[in-house]
Design a protein around this nucleic acid. Structure first.
Length: 543
RNA sequence: GCGCCCGUAGCUCAGUGGACAGAGCGUCGGCCUCCGGAGCCGAAAGUCGAAGGUUCGACUCCUUCCGGGCGUACCA
């Protein structure tokens, strides 16, 4: 029976290899040519030997030896002994054990762990980073300028900006763009609302009101193009808020410019030429249902006006011409637009050539303790991003926005975010950084006084924490691959905890191993600082 | 009706097929002559919404159903 099973799985593995072999080759190696970063190196080796695409290394469960564990032999059908042998050939591997049905448990040797710290200390900002890669264009927030940004926009900004920082770290040439929807009914309505307020009349039923509108109306004269002028003012407010939130854009583009420059017309002409459109009921339609969308979509309304979707097509063509890869950060309430945009991409032949990620994030529920905070948009009583920033500060706001997967709704507790205690994860993490800084102050040396040569030998206490640090480069790749910056908040919490635990059991200043322990602490500090930086959160030296 | 997301410990959530399901908060119980106690250690707590299926192996993939959110415009 066993023999039979082996033959079958063997055949299956050949099948898998044939299936997956190509994509592995295409992916290209050389994620990093660096000498250290053993976890990445082992990962690449396993992928090379098994032909698997993106393998996962785990930590062996309690009771098993080893520092890292892989199920790749099982998953690929390769004989575990063969893979283990290949791994034993790596300098970083002390030994391997085969356990259970074919898990390979890998023990890292002491030298590799030391080298890892040396690598961190020699160039902290570069550790875990990548080589030069192509241009990526991020589009985020892109609210129409009719009212203040609310907390949901904040989530989009935090996800987009942090993901952008991760892309930058990994070598991509990143651009952050703000697309302004400054045309259409909403903008007309904005102009009318301003006029009504100025004339002391009742604002139209679906119009804009609230304190911000009174201020804007007061700052404009009636002779201006009220819609345009008000839009510009509100856009200015948006950027002010985003600035406070540590989000900076490289460019701003206006929907109206695309229309004025006839780019939207051009795209529609091109679509007509390619027979992607038809006329019905006086409107011009795009055959998006031929490209996996639920229904066809209107490009030009029967009144002759362009739809938002039409200019969005023009905008995305423009973006695709400027970058190799596009990332759009959208609220989940826009998920209905994903397929139509993808349909357009397919129809224009971009689908296979340019990668376009659309990250959807679920809504934010604001709470104050156990009490829900109303976010009704009516009468302008919603909680703005500005108000949240003023109340809890940039660091807490950014961190909290990134604590959850973008797929999950986010519960944002204003009370917790303000709390200066270990209950608050931001403080917990920042505290670990400040505490390490304090140790160096106490010792009276600077971080630069510690160099790679101070790393000499590691005890068992150190091993655990080094393994944790060594995982950072792999984690960053995972964040990028899954468009999931929230993984960093969890990693930071665990890093902080690993440090506190270590510091609780080991004496640093005054011990025989003082120098090397300080070296380890500096490495921890550098990783925490770097990771916080990617989240847009500060790493204070004192609190 | 149809589509997308979610349903995991009292609460908020991690877990992109693998070895006995994890964390934080909350609850209960320990640890300060010592480098920041804004810290550490331990305990209790789960039929992973339900039922089928695929697999050597399913919280993870497929189908159906039940809950909740969002979307289903010639609005943006």
């Amino acid at each position: 029976m066993d023999g039979c099973w082996l033959i079958l799985t063997g055949l299956f593995s050949i099948y898998l290899f044939l299936q997956k072999g190509n994509s592995t080759l295409l992916r290209g190696s050389g994620v990093t040519g660096k000498k250290s970063m053993y976890e990445l190196k082992i990962k690449e080796k396993i992928e090379q030997v098994t032909g698997l695409d993106d393998i996962k290394l785990t930590v062996p469960p309690p009771g098993f030896s080893g520092d890292l564990s892989s199920n790749a032999a099982l998953a690929s059908g390769i004989v575990p002994q063969k893979l283990a042998e290949e791994l034993n050939g790596l300098d970083e591997v002390e030994k391997t054990d085969i356990a259970g049905p074919g898990f390979i448990n890998i023990t890292i040797n002491g030298k590799a762990l030391e080298d890892e710290i040396k690598e961190i200390l020699s160039s902290p900002a570069l550790y875990g980073g990548g080589e030069k890669k192509g241009k990526v264009l991020f589009e985020m927030v892109s609210s129409n300028p009719t009212g203040p940004l609310h907390i949901g926009h904040g989530r989009g900004a935090a996800i987009g900006d942090s993901l952008a920082r991760i892309f930058e770290k990994l070598g991509y040439d990143v651009f952050r763009e703000y697309y302004v929807n400054d045309t259409g009914n909403q903008m007309q309505l904005l102009g009318e609302s301003v006029r009504c307020i100025q004339q002391g009349k009742e604002v139209p039923e679906n119009g804009y009101r609230g304190d911000y509108m009174k201020q804007i109306a007061a700052g404009l004269t009636s002779s201006e193009d009220l819609s345009k002028a008000a839009g510009e003012k509100i856009l200015g407010m948006h950027f002010e808020t985003l600035n406070k939130f540590a989000v900076e854009y490289s460019s701003t583009v206006y929907e109206s410019d695309f229309i004025r420059a006839k780019k939207v017309e051009d795209v529609i002409e091109e679509m007509k030429k390619r027979d992607l459109t038809y006329e019905k009921d006086g409107a011009l339609w795009f055959r998006s249902s031929s490209f996996n969308d639920d229904a066809d979509r209107v490009l030009i309304k029967k009144d002759g006006e362009l739809t938002y979707f039409a200019s969005d097509c023009a905008y995305h063509i423009d973006k695709a011409q400027r970058a190799e890869r596009l990332v759009n950060i959208w609220g989940a309430d826009h998920h209905g637009y994903v397929e139509r945009l993808r349909a357009f991409f397919k129809a224009f032949g971009y689908a296979g050539k340019k990668r376009m990620d659309i990250v959807l994030y679920q809504l934010v529920d604001l709470k104050r303790g156990s009490e829900k905070v109303s976010m009704s948009t009516r009468a302008g009583e919603f909680v703005t991003l500005d108000e949240v920033l003023d109340e809890v500060g940039k660091d807490a706001a950014r961190f909290f926005m990134l604590m959850r997967s973008s797929d999950a709704p986010l519960e944002f507790d204003l009370e917790l975010a303000k709390e200066e205690s270990s209950k608050n994860p931001v403080y917990y993490v920042q505290y670990s950084h400040a505490r390490i800084c304090s140790i160096f102050r106490k010792k009276g040396i600077s971080f630069e006084d510690i160099s790679p040569s101070d790393v000499q030998g590691l005890g068992n206490e150190e091993r655990e924490i080094v393994k944790f640090l060594a995982h950072y480069p792999v984690l960053l790749q995972k964040c990028l691959q899954l468009d999931a910056p929230h993984l960093l908040t969890d990693y930071l919490r665990q890093s902080a905890s690993a440090f506190h635990k270590y510091y609780d059991t080991v004496r640093v200043i005054g011990s025989k191993q003082e120098r090397q322990r300080l070296a380890l602490l500096r490495a921890v500090k550098e990783i925490i600082k770097d990771a916080l930086g990617l989240l847009g959160v500060s790493a204070p030296e004192k609190m």
